[in-house]
């Protein structure tokens, strides 16, 4: 199969790659670029472990062809930290114990960040609806909801 050229920007870094067009976005991020923070849990758009931001929107990278992201700005979990400082949402996750095994955490945090970007003051129900596309088998979600809520309230903003 003839490879095709893909250009995209991941965490501010531009990439030019030749890929088999059937390559999924998650495969480009993990295998070609090497950012393994993004996970893959189901491949059926169900679990949200592979969530990244594409032009600022949360999407599930397991069900998008990398070619469909041509020219896009992709942000992964590795792109959340700014100059060595954890993002407020990351601090909140640690402080609330909003993860256990950590496998869903990257996707969960990316979904949460996108939610807060769009709706800085969500109600508890809006938070729950917002992360409904992410499965966490460990925590039972309530600590995650508390962490997102606390972030929205500004508890983890840099001074």
């Amino acid at each position: 199969m003839e490879k095709q050229l893909l250009t995209l920007t991941v965490n501010g870094q531009p990439y030019e790659l030749y890929i088999n067009p059937k390559t999924l976005l998650v495969e480009v991020i993990r295998d070609h670029i090497g950012l393994t923070g993004t996970k893959r849990g189901c491949s059926t758009v169900s679990c949200g472990s592979c969530t990244v931001m594409l032009n600022g929107m949360a999407v599930k990278s397991c069900s998008i062809l990398a070619m469909q992201a041509e020219g896009a700005q992709v942000t992964t979990i590795e792109g959340l930290e700014q100059t060595g400082e954890l993002a407020p949402i990351q601090k909140a996750f640690i402080d609330h114990g909003a993860f256990q095994c950590g496998f869903c955490t990257s996707g969960m945090i990316m979904t949460a960040q996108a939610l807060l970007d769009e709706n800085p003051n969500p109600t508890e129900w809006e938070i729950r609806e917002g992360i409904e596309g992410n499965i966490c088998r460990c925590t039972g979600y309530n600590s995650i909801v508390r962490a997102i809520d606390a972030t929205a309230k500004g508890n983890y903003k840099e001074v």
Binding site: R30, L35, T36, G37, T38, K39, R40, T76, I77, E78, L80, E81, L86, Q90, F93, I94, D95, G97, F99, G102, F103, T105, S106, I109
Partner: peptide, 19 residues
């Protein structure tokens, strides 16, 4: 007390067998 694996897990640094 925070989980001692916290930073690794919220930043995507934690490498699983999968990775």
């Amino acid at each position: 007390v925070h989980n001692i694996d916290g930073v690794a897990k919220v930043t995507g640094r934690a490498t699983y067998t999968f990775d």
